[in-house]
Design a protein around this nucleic acid. Structure first.
Lengths: 181, 181
DNA sequence: AAGGGGTAATTGGTCTGACCAATGACCGCC
DNA sequence: GGCGGTCATTGGTCAGACCAATTACCCCTT
C-alpha cells in the first residue's frame, strides 16, 4: 500500500514522475543547499520521500541530464551552479540533430552575426581582427554582452565548424562589414 | 570560458545513461518512426539494446520530460512532434529564481527579430499584424525561411513566454519597426 | 605526532524479478 | 453485425541484490 507523495503538497495533479522531481527540488530548496553542496543520497531521498529508489533515480537522472545536478559514482550527487546549466545545450542538441540543413547553419550564423553588428556602436574594435575570420566573428559576438545569445551562437558555430567548411566570410566580406558601420 | 561540452556531436565517450538515450534516439530514427507513431515497448527496447528495463526507463523518462516522447499507461510510448515545448516550462522552473537570465532572454529575442527584419525586403506584410505582438513577430520570423533559425527562435520564445511577461514590444515599437523599412 | 596505507562503509550504477494498473485487442454471446 | 467481457500487452512502481567507485576511518609505521 503506497501512500501518496512524500513530503510536500503538490499544487497540481501531475503524474508521479514530475511530482517526484518537484519534491526533490523543493527539498533541495528547503534544506538550503547551495551550488556545490552534496544533496542526500538516493537511498535517503527514497526514504524521506516515501518512494522507491528506482523512482528517485529516474528523477535524478533527468535532473542530471538537464544540468541541475551532477552525480559522481561513489561520491554522491552535487548541486551545480545555475550558470553551468546546460539547458541551452540540451535544446541545441535536439534542434541541431537530424535534418538541419547545412545551408541553414551558415545562414543562421550570418543572421546572428548581422544582428550583433547592427547593435555594434563602434566597429573600430573589429578592424584589428579583419585578418582572421574566427577572431573577427568571436569579437563581434562578444560585444553583445548577452550570455544566452552568445551560447546559442557558440553552439551553432561549433556545429558549423564540424562540417569543416572553413571561413564563413571572405576577407572582402569582412571589410564590407566594417564599411557599413 | 567553458567550451568543454561544446560539441553537439554525439560520438563521444559519455556515460552509459546518455549512451542509452542516444541509442534509443538512433533506433527511433533508423526504424523510421514519425511523430505519432508508437515506439517499441520498454521490454522490447531493453532486449534489443541489451540493457535492463530500469535503464530503458531512465532514458525514456528523460525523453518524456523533454517532450520528445509521450507515454500512456498501458498504451505505450509515442513519438511527439518537436513543436511541443512542454519541457521548456519545466526547465524554466529551475531558473525563475535568477533574474539575470530573463534579461538575456528578452534581449536575445530582440536580436533575433532584428536580424530577421534586416533581411526583410518588404515590410508591408507585417502591417496587418501590427495589432498583435505574437502575430507580428511570428510573421516576421516566417519571412526568413531558415528552418534552423526559426526553431531556435521558437525555442527561445517559448522559454520567454513561460515567464508570462506578456508582449515583447509595445505597439509603438512595432510601428517604429515598420517605419524603418 | 604526523604521514601513509589499507580496510570498511557509503554511494551511485545496474540488474532481476515481481506485482499492480491502465489500455486495447480479441472472442464469444446476443 | 454489434456489444460486452476477458485477457494479453504495456507502462508504473517496488524490493532486493550485487558490482564499482569513492570516501572515511583507523591503525601502523616512522
Amino acid at each position: 500500500m503506497r501512500q501518496e507523495g512524500g513530503a510536500v503538497q503538490m499544487e497540481k495533479k501531475r503524474n508521479a514522475f514530475e511530482m517526484n522531481i518537484s519534491a526533490i527540488k523543493t527539498m533541495i530548496e528547503q534544506d538550503g543547499f547551495v551550488p556545490g553542496d552534496r544533496i542526500p543520497s538516493e537511498r535517503e531521498l527514497a526514504e524521506r520521500l516515501s518512494i522507491s529508489r528506482p523512482s528517485v533515480r529516474e528523477a535524478l537522472r533527468t535532473l542530471a541530464y538537464l544540468g541541475i545536478i551532477e552525480t559522481r559514482h561513489g561520491g554522491g550527487s552535487f548541486l551545480l551552479n545555475r550558470d553551468d546549466h546546460t539547458y541551452i545545450q540540451i535544446i541545441a542538441q535536439f534542434l541541431v540533430t537530424g535534418d538541419s540543413k547545412f545551408e541553414d547553419l551558415a545562414g543562421t550564423l550570418r543572421l546572428l552575426e548581422q544582428a550583433a553588428f547592427v547593435q555594434l556602436a563602434d566597429a573600430s574594435i573589429l578592424e584589428v581582427h579583419v585578418d582572421s575570420d574566427a577572431a573577427f566573428r568571436e569579437t563581434l559576438i562578444a560585444t553583445i554582452d548577452n550570455d544566452l545569445f552568445e551560447r546559442i551562437w557558440r553552439q551553432v558555430n561549433a556545429f558549423y565548424q564540424s562540417f569543416g567548411q572553413g571561413e564563413l566570410y571572405t576577407r572582402a566580406e569582412r571589410e564590407a562589414f566594417l564599411k557599413r558601420s
